[in-house]
Amino acid sequence: MNTGNQSYKVDFMLVGLFQYGSMNGFLFAAIVFLFLVAVLGNITLVHLIRLDSRLHTPMYFLLSQLSLIDMMYICTTVPKMASNFLANIKTITFLGCEIQTFMFLSLGGCEAVLLGFMSYDHYVAICHPLRYAVLMSKKICCSLSICAWSSSVVNSLIHSLYFFQLPFCGSRLIDHFFCEIPSLLSLVCEDTSQYEYTILLSGLIILLLPFLTILASYAQVLTVVFQINSGTGRTKALSTCSSHLIVASLFYVTTLSAYTRPHSLHDPAQDKMVAVFYSIVTPLLNPFIYSLRNKEVLGALRRLLG
C-alpha cells in the first residue's frame, strides 16, 4: 500500500482515441464537428421547451432534463481530448482525472435513471390517460428529476472517493481517451477483484434495473396500443415509444458492456470504440431522434423561426 502511495497525485497519461497516423487530423475534425452538433442540438431542444408553452408538459420537462445531461455529458470528455490533441500533450492531472471520473459517472448514471422515468411517463400517458395529471403532476416530475440526480451523484461520489484512494504504481498510462474506472483498474497495484463486484452491483442497479423497467413498461404499452381503434393514435404512440426505445437500447447496451464485464475480458481498443457510442454518439442522437420524429417539437421550432 505504501509503495503505491509514493506515486499518489502524479499526473496520468492518456493514450487518446486517435491512433491512425495520417488520419488523425480528419478524425479529430470529425469528432469536434459531432461535438458541436450535439451541443447545439441539445441547447436548441432545451431552449424550445423553455420558450414554447405547448411543451410545458411532464414528458418535455423530462426531455429537457435529458438534453441538459447530454450537453454536460459530452463536455466532460471531448474538450479535454481535443485540447490534448491540439497541444500534443497527453497528460491529465490526478485531480483532473478524479473530477472527470466523478462527472462522467454522475451524468451517465443520471441519464440511465432518467430514461427509465421517461418510459414510466409514456406508460402512464398511454395506459392510464385519465390519471395522467395526477400520476405525473409537477411535484412528481420534480421528485423524479431530483431522484435521478441525487442517486447518480451519491453513487459516483462513493466510487470516486474510494477508487482514487487506491494505490497506483508503475505505468501511469491510461489506454483510453478519458478517465474511466474500467480503464484505470489496470493501474492499481493491488487486488481489485472485490471492488469489481461492487462495480458490477452498481451497474446492475443503475443500468440494468432501469432498462428492465423500460422493457416492462413498453410491453404493457404495446398491449394497449394494439387495442387502439384509431390508426393515427396508434401511430403516434408507437412513434413516441420507438424513439425512446432506440435511444435507451443504444445507451444501455454499450454502458452495460463497459461496466458489467469482468476486467480480464476488457480490450482497450474495443473499450474505446464502445465508449464513443455512449459518450459521444448517444448525446448527439438524442435531440434529433426526439425532435425529428416529433411534430410538436418541429412545430415549436417553426414557430421560433417565424
Results as ranks from 00 to 15, higher is better:
55 L>K: 00
131 R>M: 04
295 K>N: 06
14 L>A: 03
262 P>E: 04
19 Q>H: 03
251 F>K: 06
89 I>W: 08
254 T>W: 11
5 N>G: 15
191 D>I: 12
87 A>T: 08
65 Q>N: 09
80 K>H: 01
134 V>I: 08
56 H>Y: 04
181 I>C: 15
49 I>N: 15
31 I>C: 13
237 A>R: 02
185 L>N: 14
11 D>P: 13
83 S>A: 04
299 G>P: 08
138 K>G: 12
100 Q>V: 00
28 F>Y: 08
109 G>I: 10
211 F>C: 08
208 L>Y: 00
202 S>E: 10
98 E>Q: 10
126 I>Q: 00
150 S>Y: 12
302 R>A: 06
184 L>F: 07
128 H>L: 09
210 P>V: 04
59 M>N: 11
157 L>A: 14
292 L>H: 07
127 C>K: 07
202 S>I: 11
186 S>E: 15
19 Q>A: 04
13 M>K: 13
50 R>H: 12
44 T>I: 00
76 T>W: 10
91 T>E: 10
193 S>E: 15
68 L>V: 02
260 T>C: 05
304 L>A: 06
268 P>M: 03
118 M>Q: 14
248 A>Y: 02
35 F>T: 01
203 G>S: 02
183 S>I: 05
75 C>A: 14
178 F>P: 03
278 Y>K: 08
58 P>M: 11
191 D>R: 11
98 E>F: 05
110 C>T: 06
31 I>R: 12
11 D>T: 09
178 F>R: 07
168 F>A: 12
198 T>L: 15
168 F>V: 14
60 Y>W: 01
9 K>C: 14
166 L>H: 04
241 C>I: 04
213 T>D: 00
172 R>M: 15
258 A>L: 14
91 T>R: 13
33 F>Q: 05
281 V>S: 07
43 I>P: 04
179 C>V: 01
174 I>W: 04
250 L>H: 01
44 T>D: 00
92 I>D: 01
182 P>K: 07
273 M>K: 13
17 L>R: 07
51 L>T: 05
37 V>Q: 07
228 I>L: 13
246 I>E: 10
246 I>H: 10
214 I>T: 08
241 C>T: 09
59 M>D: 13
269 A>I: 10
209 L>A: 08
39 V>Q: 13
19 Q>K: 04
236 K>S: 09
150 S>C: 14
297 V>R: 03
206 I>R: 08
208 L>H: 01
67 S>E: 09
293 R>L: 06
131 R>E: 06
14 L>M: 12
163 F>P: 03
15 V>S: 09
139 K>I: 04
36 L>D: 03
199 I>S: 13
294 N>D: 05
224 V>P: 13
170 G>D: 13
224 V>E: 12
262 P>F: 09
223 T>H: 08
102 F>E: 05
71 M>R: 02
130 L>C: 11
92 I>K: 06
297 V>D: 03
169 C>D: 15
248 A>P: 03
147 C>T: 07
241 C>D: 01
20 Y>N: 09
1 M>A: 13
276 V>F: 06
263 H>M: 15
197 Y>E: 15
274 V>E: 01
49 I>Y: 13
119 S>I: 10
188 V>M: 01
56 H>V: 02
4 G>C: 15
180 E>P: 03
273 M>S: 13
236 K>Y: 08
153 V>K: 00
174 I>A: 09
238 L>K: 08
